[in-house]
Design a protein around this nucleic acid. Structure first.
Length: 875
RNA sequence: GCGAGCGUGGCGAAACCUGGUAGACGCAACGGACUUAAAAUCCGUUUCCCGUAAGGGAGUGCGGGUUCAAUUCCCGCCGCUCGCACCA
């Protein structure tokens, strides 16, 4: 009687043996001796507490790739670390009086032991935590290097202020006008901010997306949109009339009072269709006029009172006010247009001012119609009659032929665009320009638990960098969280220092860096994690980078991935890295989440899955027996309690079952629902494999063993095994883990089906089991290792070379050809692979059930697709 | 509003890249074996309709098109999901 597979003994045993043998250690370039390198990385976790089975999917996918690459002869770097700075640590400190550092390191310890349970092939010697001075010291050095390089600057600007978290947010961290973490409506404040000059690389960041051919199209598109390049023209409109109260223009101040008004447009070809100018509510001129004109002041207040959320914008009516200013048309001194302020003009894009060309823009058209501003169409759609074409409520925004436009008449839109710009330049009324949606990255955060910005404020010398020899600027440990705001600023002594330039009294910068900075270069630190003197050795980073396979969630499609791309460029330009492409991640995979049903008690409390049970087809609360409200299937999250704890699960079912399950059933990029029945399936598979292995025993044939003569059944199993090798190899390469899983089931089913015990069958079965153990090794490493040993091989399957399919066995010698009559299948024949078309044709026509359908009909055509199909056309 | 993706049995899905037997594999369900019984395990059935069967018909969101042949390619709808969003 076969004993059950005991994962509780087997799994820890192999993890200990792998650790002892250090099989997961990445080799140095010298040790690797010509082996190709493979850097496999999953986005590192924030140490929030405990991990649940939902987290395991991301790491398991990376682990499959890492193990697969290793078996295929690569020198693999597969590290793990902790994105350890961040607000939750401070919140815990405030709520529970724990120090953020203690909270963070406790969580790291807990999560590390949990992650280890999964049996991931990780080189733990390279572990890093971003909150450790040994890490952020180098981040401060990089900051100084960027500063020197002109990639860091300070700017007083309006910032997004999160009133709950009491800190500044980057544009990217504002979602629907709310803080991405707190969910509180974001306020606007003017603050002196540390900025990273991301826009210095705008063009490169955009162009290089074209070379990221192993990134999902979706992510590439999202980044392109985010960078948002738009080409057009700036146009200056001289003031013709203005209210008397406006002061005359001080020299050199654009957009003010009586200077020409600068607008941005992508459609200078429609200038002759201009009807009005519209300024943003907070445009300097609008504000200046509001001081004297109550109607305009009222308009500004009304515009500000409208929300900025999607729904608000959708509903918000377009409205405006005539500012009483008139401007001259750039192409015609005598043509005077009114200047309005309008709520749909954004001060944050372009110049905060537009010219309205109603026939070619829906918003402008709605606005013109509402306020009865005259306009005329200037773009003729293809095929339209210039004599009758009119625009009433529907703007025509596509290309066409320009008309009603003097010297632009008759030009196609594209040509009219460049002609119009040429003319603007000639008349000194405008110039070609490129607008970016991308903004520089404000990195100042008024928080404690982050990387201190290595700068010093001196009354005499201004803002000066900390000397490199004085790094790291470490966080003080004795901080209090008893009042809102930045504990660093409140600290009694920490910020007091001396100026490195003049030696006088000075104060430290109390802002810390946005935690996205920490994660923008960690992948480089992994290449040389112990380096004390520099962020990383250039040669080592050059050897390992770019990351060959990056795995993580789609939620980082813009922020983290864009910032990292900025960083590798900055590091390159500071001479710290030679990365030919400039790109940190050669290949990116965005995996789907693990989702689970949510449960609520009758009292409306969220319930953990294990607090419920199914009785008589209905879900009830275990404790009370009361019915449970089953809610939506959502991403596993602690707040909704729809999580399955990893420790408990590994104890009950084993890490291999968790790993296998999260990769089965659903394509990796799609979400997978965690269900009890799915677990059961994975569990059953583990037992089934083990039963087959154990009953086979020690003497599986070695890879080079010569096969004895065998019965057709046994031979068929051999063929299937070798075909499965080829198929699973392809599937793993192509991230089709769910299909690889299905093929493993097929192989197991076939092994179980072959019952004979003659020498040929034993050979075929043993070989198939050996292959099976190897193919499932990246997925279920513990079971595979135990099976490998049981079958009589030396440890470790983890380091054994990946099996090779014998082409002679994997290739099919005969094929089943379906025979269609007029596209409907009417029979099938067996034919040798590559059989002559004439023979196949003859066989097909002679097939009895096919012949039935041919009777009394004329065969018009016989299509023979070699080795695929035969179609007989009759009629 | 703009952009992208998806739509296949009771369910998760495969086949789509490269047009060629639609539904691999798993789950669930049903029938059977073993068992005092249950669990576990094993064997079988399972897209729908007609038929005892042999067999026939329909079928990949809907409507068209290309083709000997369309889940696959093209056009137009419908629905869902995601991203961006008054970006001039």
């Amino acid at each position: 009687m076969a004993s059950r597979y005991n994962h509780r003994e087997v799994e820890p045993k192999w993890r200990a043996r792998w650790a002892d043998a250090k099989i997961d250690r990445a080799l140095s370039p010298d040790e690797a001796k010509g082996k190709p390198k493979a850097y496999v990385l999953e986005m590192f976790p924030y140490p929030s507490g405990r991990i649940h089975v939902g987290h395991s999917r991301n790491y398991t996918m990376g682990d499959v790739i890492a193990r697969f690459r290793r078996a295929n002869g690569y020198n693999v770097l597969h590290p793990m670390g902790w994105d350890a700075f961040g607000l939750p640590a401070e919140n815990a400190a405030m709520e529970r009086g724990i120090h953020p550092k203690g909270w963070t390191y406790d969580n790291i310890a807990a999560m590390k032991s949990q992650l280890k349970l999964l049996g991931l092939a990780i080189d733990w010697d390279r572990e890093i935590a971003t909150c450790d001075p040994s890490y952020y010291k180098h981040q401060q050095a990089i900051f100084l290097a960027f500063w020197k390089q002109g990639l860091v600057y300070r700017k007083k600007q309006k910032v997004n202020w999160d009133p709950v978290d009491m800190t500044v947010l980057a544009n990217e961290q504002v979602v629907d006008g709310k803080g991405w973490r707190s969910g509180a409506p974001v306020e606007t404040r003017e603050l002196e901010q540390w900025m990273f000059k991301v826009t210095a690389y705008a063009e490169d960041l955009l162009q290089a997306i074209g070379g990221l051919d192993k990134w999902p199209d979706k992510v590439r598109l999202m980044q392109s949109n985010w960078i948002g390049k738009s080409q057009g023209a700036k146009i200056w409109w001289p003031i013709a009339e203005a209210p008397a109260f406006l002061p005359s223009s001080p020299a050199g101040e654009p957009n003010h009072a009586r200077d020409p008004i600068e607008v941005y447009t992508t459609r200078p070809d429609t200038l002759f269709g201009a009807s009005f100018l519209a300024l943003a509510p907070d445009h300097p001129l609008t504000k200046a006029i509001a001081e004297h004109n109550p109607e305009v002041a009222k308009f500004i207040a009304e515009a500000a009172s409208l929300g900025t959320s999607e729904a608000d914008i959708e509903k918000a009516p377009k409205f405006g006010v005539d500012l009483g200013v008139r401007v001259k048309h750039p192409f015609d001194e005598n043509w005077v247009l009114p200047v309005w302020a309008a709520n749909f003009v954004l001060s944050t894009y372009g110049t905060g001012a537009i010219f309205g060309s109603p026939a070619g823009d829906q918003r402008d058209l709605d606005f013109a119609n509402k306020y009865r501003l005259p306009f005329k169409p200037v773009v003729l759609p293809p095929g339209a009659d210039p004599a009758t074409h009119t625009i009433t409520t529907e703007a025509y925004t596509d290309d066409g032929t320009t008309y009603n436009s003097q010297f632009l008449d008759g030009l196609p839109t594209r040509e009219a665009l460049s002609r119009a710009i040429d003319e603007l330049v000639k008349r000194k009324r405008g110039e070609a320009t490129t607008q970016w949606r991308l903004r520089d990255w404000g990195v100042s955060r008024q928080r404690y638990w982050g990387c201190p910005i290595p700068a010093i404020h001196c009354e005499k010398c201004g803002v000066v960098p900390v000397l490199e020899k004085d790094l790291p600027v470490t966080l003080p440990e004795d901080v209090k969280f008893d009042r809102p705001g930045n504990p660093l600023a409140h600290h009694p002594t920490w910020k007091h220092t001396t100026c490195p330039t003049c030696g006088g009294k000075a104060e430290r910068e109390t802002d810390t860096l946005d935690t996205f900075v920490d994660s923008s270069w960690y992948f480089a630190r992994f290449t040389d994690p112990k380096n004390e003197s520099q962020p990383f050795d250039k040669a080592l980073a050059n050897y390992w980078l770019p990351v060959d396979q990056y795995v993580g969630g789609i939620e980082h499609a813009v922020l983290h991935l864009l910032y990292s791309r900025f960083f590798t460029r900055g590091l390159r330009d500071c001479g710290l890295l030679d990365l030919p492409s400039g790109e940190p991640f050669a290949s990116l995979f965005t995996q789907g989440m693990v989702v689970h049903e949510t449960y609520k008690s009758a009292a409306g409390q969220w319930l953990l899955p294990e607090e419920t049970d199914v009785k008589d087809g209905a879900r009830v609360e275990l404790k009370t027996g009361a019915p449970v409200q089953v809610g939506d299937i959502e991403k596993m999250s602690k707040s909704k309690k729809n999580v399955v704890d990893l420790d408990a699960f590994v104890t009950d079912f084993g890490a291999d079952v968790a790993r296998w399950f999260v990769l089965s059933d659903s394509p990796p990029e799609r979400d997978v629902e965690w269900t009890a029945s799915g677990v059961k399936g994975a569990w059953g598979f583990v037992q089934r494999v083990w039963t087959l292995v154990e009953s086979y025993g020690q003497n599986a044939p070695k890879p080079d063993a010569v096969a004895p003569a065998m019965e057709p059944d046994a031979h068929a199993l051999r063929q299937l095994a070798h075909r499965t090798v080829a198929a699973v190899t392809d599937d793993i390469e192509g991230f089709r883990f769910n299909v690889a899983v299905a093929r493993s089931y097929e192989l197991v089913n076939a092994i179980a089906k072959l019952k004979s015990t003659d020498a040929g069958s034993m050979f075929a079965r043993g070989e198939a089991l050996r292959i099976l153990a190897q193919l499932i090794a990246p997925f279920m490493p513990h079971l595979a290792e135990e099976s490998w040993e049981k079958l009589g091989f030396n440890p470790f399957v983890a380091t054994a070379p990946w099996p090779k399919a014998d082409p002679a066995l994997a290739a099919r010698t005969t094929v089943t050809l379906p025979i269609q009559v007029n596209g409907k299948k009417r029979g099938e024949i067996e034919a040798a692979k590559g059989a002559a078309e004439a023979d196949v044709r003859e066989q097909a026509l002679a097939h009895p059930s096919v012949a039935q359908f041919l009777a009394g009909q004329t065969v018009r055509k016989v299509i023979v697709v070699p080795d695929r199909i035969v179609n007989i056309v009759v009629g």
